[in-house]
Amino acid sequence: MSLPLYLTMMKSHGKMLGGFIYGAAAYIVLIIWIYPSIADMKGFNEMIAALPKGMRKLIGMENGINSLSDYIAGEFYGMLFLIILMVYVILTSTRVMARLVDQGSMAYLLATPNSRVKVAITQAAVLLTGLALIVGFTTLSGIAASEWLIDGYQLDVASFITLNLLTFLVFASIAGYCFFISSVNNDEKKALGISSGITLLFYMLNMAGKLSEKTEWMLNFSIFKWYDPVKVINNETEALWIGCALGILTFFLFMLSVVVFKKRNLPL
């Protein structure tokens, strides 16, 4: 890794990253803040129960809202946060590699005595650091808001942290294949298109898979199969094993990207 490059890259991504962090953190604080009024609302769970099962699954409220944890996991991690992270990962992975090759500024980085492997690892580190910062700040904001902003409702901090770690790992894997696509493409737009295409496909398979039992098999073809926030926060999954698997997958994808980037022709 090249430290000067890393710092420069972090600095130039700072504004965009700041926006994502602010968005995610502000939203989690907001929904925690309004939780008491929803929890106290009579008939809310009945209303939810009246929805078809597939629909409930889709909006992350299979069993209605029984606790603050369920609520956060379903409302925030199941929906908005997922989209925020998807957008961040796709955009940033394209920016750190394909864009530099497309525009030609990669030539300057490689015209210094830093190998392609070193440059690619640095760029991967920038991508993952950004992701970690978003998830990290969101975790802290969530814990802080549930401690200080509302009274009488408990957040299971340990499971909440587990959920966040798993979220990070799922999106690190997504970042992995997006980074790979970004590393093998000379065209920024093409890389962006393929990355978002695949990710959206995964997302749609995930939605379709949750709709009914007939379509449940579709889930098996989506990376989001491993991302079920409500179950994770209720400790109903093998979080440790899923985490390990995702970690290995991520490592493998980034390794592969770096190796392919090292060996390919660059039109610089």
């Binding site: 130039s12 530099l100 500024s105 030539a107």
Partner: peptide, 30 residues
């Protein structure tokens, strides 16, 4: 390639720098 760069200076035909930097910022990064 990387070792050769220690003793080589290169001026690309297409000049595109990293975004959001000043001339000095770029030169000191290099």
């Amino acid at each position: 390639a990387a070792r050769i760069q220690e003793k080589t200076g290169y001026l690309p035909g297409e000049i595109v720098f990293l975004e959001g930097m000043t001339g000095l910022g770029f030169l000191s990064l290099v």
